[in-house]
Design a protein around this nucleic acid. Structure first.
Length: 485
RNA sequence: GGCCCGGUCGUCAAGCGGUUAAGACACCGCCCUUUCACGGCGGGUUCACGGGUUCGAAUCCCGUCCGGGUCACCA
C-alpha cells in the first residue's frame, strides 16, 4: 500500500498573508488533495522578537476564506501535535544533543563579535572558520561548566558534493564546500528554522516539502540533516518565485513597492477570494488542457506537479482583474447585489433605489467592486456638464434636435404610471419611430440629460428607471433649460 | 564576488527533434448596440545571442549575455 501523501503549510505568524505564501499554501493543498492526501497547518513561531498579536487568526481566517481547509492544525488538532513550534520547544534539544554524542555536531562558543569580524568588510562573503569544530574534549567541558554561551553546529562534509532531486527543477548538485557548519540550536536554546523544520517534517511524516525556490540552494543542508539522523528524505517541490514589476520596469521578488501583495489588501481592493486563488494558481502552473477558470475543486481535479514551471512569473494585476470580472459576471444577481451593497451605500448613502436594475447594469461592467462608487456617483447627484455633450455624430444629435427629443420624451414619460424598465423601454422605443428618428437620436440626449455624463454604465432606459420618475423628469427639464429652451 | 536556477509576443503561458509556434490577459481595428461594458470577429517580425550535434533545432550540447535567488544565532 502506498504511503499517504502529507503536505504542510508552515507560515510564520507575521499578521500578513503575502500572495506568495498563499500560493505556496494553495499548491501544498492541491498536491495533497489531488493525491487524496492530507494538508497540515503548522505555525512556525520560533522567532520571539517577531511575534505579532492576533497573527495566527489572520492565518486561520485566510485559509477559511480561500477554502484551503486543513486536516490537522493547532485549531483542530490531529495525532501529530502540537502544531505550534513554540509548544514543541523542549522537543528539539535532544535531537541536537544526539548528533553531538554521535560526533556529527559540536558545541560552538564563538561570540557574535568574532563571527562578525570573520565575515569581513563585504557582507555575504566568507563564512565560519569552524574554530570550535575540533576543540579538545576537556576544553569543551570546561567552557560548558563555566556556563559559557554556546550554539550547536552540525559538522558539514568538507569535500565532495551533495546531489538531490527536485520534482520541478530536476537534479541539482551543490559543492559541500559551499556549506557552512550550520547552527542547529541557538544560544537562547531555540532551534533554528532549518533545524526545527526538518525535525517537525519528519515527526509529522510530511512526504512532500513544498516551498519557494529561494530554498533551493539550502536544500543540501536539510538533506545532510536527514542523513545524519538516518531519516527518509521527502520529495521536494520548489516553486518559481512570484515577481513584481516596478515603475522603472525592473522585476524583483513581489513586494509592497509593486502594489498590494497581501491577501487582505487585494480583497479590500475589491478582488474576490476565488478570483485571487484562481489567478495565483495559474502563476507558475499550467493545466494540461489550458483551461483558465477553475474552482478550487476544479484545481484539485486538474493539478499535477509536472505542470509547474521553472521560470519566475510577474504578477499581473490586469489579468487578476479579468478573472475577477469573470467571477463577478458568473454570479447570481442577488449575490452580486449583496457584495456590492457596501459600495452602493458609499455613493448613495441610505437612499434606496431599484437595486435589481442597478446590479443588472453594473454586473457586466465592473471588474473590481471598488469601481462601483465612482461609477454610480451621478445617481446621487447630477454632475455639472456642458451642452456640447448633447452633440453626437453617430447618434445624429445636435443642439437643436436634442431640444425636440427631450420635449417629446418628457411628455411621453410624464404619462407613465408604472415606472419600470419595461414600460419606459416600450414608451421610448415607440416614440422614436413616431418622431421618424432612429433610437439613438432620441435616447442619446435623454441619457445625457439624465446622467450629465457622456459615458455611463447602462443606457438611458436603465438610468431613468433607477432615478425614479420624479428625479428623471427633473433632470430632463434641467437639460432642456441648459439648451436654452 | 562564489554557488544555484531561469530566459517562447508587453504579461501569464503551451510546446519535450519535423507545428502555418496554441491559448489567455493587455493593446489596436471591425461588428453588435442607446454611450460604456458584455459578446462576436480580426490584427502583431515572439523562440536572448553565437557556435555545434542532426537530413531537420524553440526543443539536445557548449559558450556569451541578461534576469533572479542564495551565501545569518531571520524565517
Amino acid at each position: 500500500m502506498q504511503k499517504k501523501i502529507r503536505t504542510r503549510f508552515a507560515p510564520s505568524p507575521t499578521g500578513f498573508m503575502h500572495v506568495g505564501n498563499l500560493r505556496t499554501a494553495l499548491y501544498e493543498y492541491l498536491i495533497a488533495k489531488s493525491m487524496h492526501g492530507d494538508f497540515i497547518l503548522r505555525i512556525e513561531d520560533t522567532d520571539q522578537e517577531r511575534l505579532v498579536e492576533g497573527a495566527t487568526d489572520v492565518i486561520y481566517r485566510t485559509l477559511r476564506e480561500t477554502g484551503l481547509m486543513h486536516d490537522e492544525g493547532p485549531d483542530i488538532g490531529g495525532e501529530f501535535g502540537p502544531y505550534v513550534q513554540s509548544e514543541r520547544q523542549e522537543l528539539y534539544r535532544p535531537y541536537a544533543e544526539q548528533l553531538v554524542r554521535e560526533g556529527k555536531a559540536y558545541y560552538c562558543f564563538c561570540t557574535k563579535e568574532r563571527l562578525d569580524s570573520l565575515r569581513g568588510e563585504e557582507e555575504g562573503f566568507g563564512g565560519y572558520d569552524r574554530h570550535c569544530r575540533d576543540l579538545p574534549q576537556e576544553e569543551v567541558e570546561r567552557l560548558l561548566k563555566a556556563g559559557t554561551p554556546y550554539v550547536i553546529r552540525q559538522k558539514m562534509p568538507v569535500e565532495g558534493s551533495t546531489t538531490f532531486e527536485d520534482a520541478v527543477y530536476g537534479s541539482i548538485t551543490i559543492e559541500n564546500s559551499e556549506l557552512e557548519d550550520q547552527i542547529l540550536l541557538k544560544s537562547d536554546g531555540y532551534p533554528t528554522y532549518n533545524f526545527a523544520n526538518v525535525i517537525d517534517d519528519h515527526l509529522m511524516q510530511i512526504t512532500h516539502v513544498v516551498r519557494g525556490c529561494e530554498y533551493l540552494t539550502s536544500t543540501p543542508k536539510y538533506n545532510l540533516l536527514y542523513e545524519a539522523f538516518g531519516w527518509e528524505i521527502p520529495v521536494y517541490v520548489h516553486l518559481p518565485l512570484i515577481m513584481g514589476r516596478g515603475d522603472d520596469g525592473e522585476v524583483s521578488k513581489l513586494s509592497k513597492r509593486h502594489g498590494s501583495t497581501g491577501f487582505d489588501d487585494l480583497v479590500n481592493e475589491g478582488y474576490l477570494p476565488q478570483a485571487i486563488m484562481n489567478y495565483i494558481a495559474l502563476l507558475g502552473w499550467c493545466p494540461k488542457d489550458n483551461e483558465e477558470v477553475f474552482s478550487l475543486e476544479g484545481l484539485v481535479q486538474n493539478f499535477s506537479v509536472d505542470g509547474i514551471s521553472k521560470s519566475p512569473s510577474v504578477f499581473d494585476y490586469d489579468k487578476l482583474a479579468w478573472f475577477n470580472g469573470e467571477y463577478l459576471r458568473a454570479m447570481p444577481p442577488e449575490e452580486f447585489t449583496a457584495l456590492a451593497m457596501p459600495y452602493y451605500r458609499q455613493s448613495l448613502g441610505e437612499k434606496t433605489c431599484n437595486w435589481t436594475v442597478l446590479s443588472t447594469i453594473l454586473q457586466p461592467r465592473v471588474t473590481q467592486l471598488t469601481q462601483i462608487p465612482e461609477k454610480i456617483r451621478f445617481f446621487a447627484e447630477l454632475p455639472e456638464y456642458e451642452t456640447d455633450l448633447f452633440v453626437n455624430k453617430k447618434s445624429k444629435t445636435n443642439l437643436e434636435n436634442s431640444v425636440t427629443m427631450l420635449e417629446h420624451a418628457i411628455a411621453a414619460l410624464e404619462a407613465i404610471s408604472t415606472w419600470d424598465v419595461e414600460t419606459i423601454h416600450t414608451v421610448l422605443l415607440e416614440l422614436a419611430p413616431k418622431l421618424e428618428v432612429k433610437n439613438g437620436t432620441l435616447l442619446w440626449p435623454v441619457r445625457i440629460a439624465a446622467a450629465g455624463m457622456s459615458v455611463t454604465p447602462g443606457g438611458a432606459i436603465e438610468i431613468l428607471a433607477i432615478l425614479g420618475k420624479e428625479e428623471s423628469l427633473r433632470r430632463l427639464r434641467i437639460g432642456l433649460a441648459k439648451l436654452g429652451a
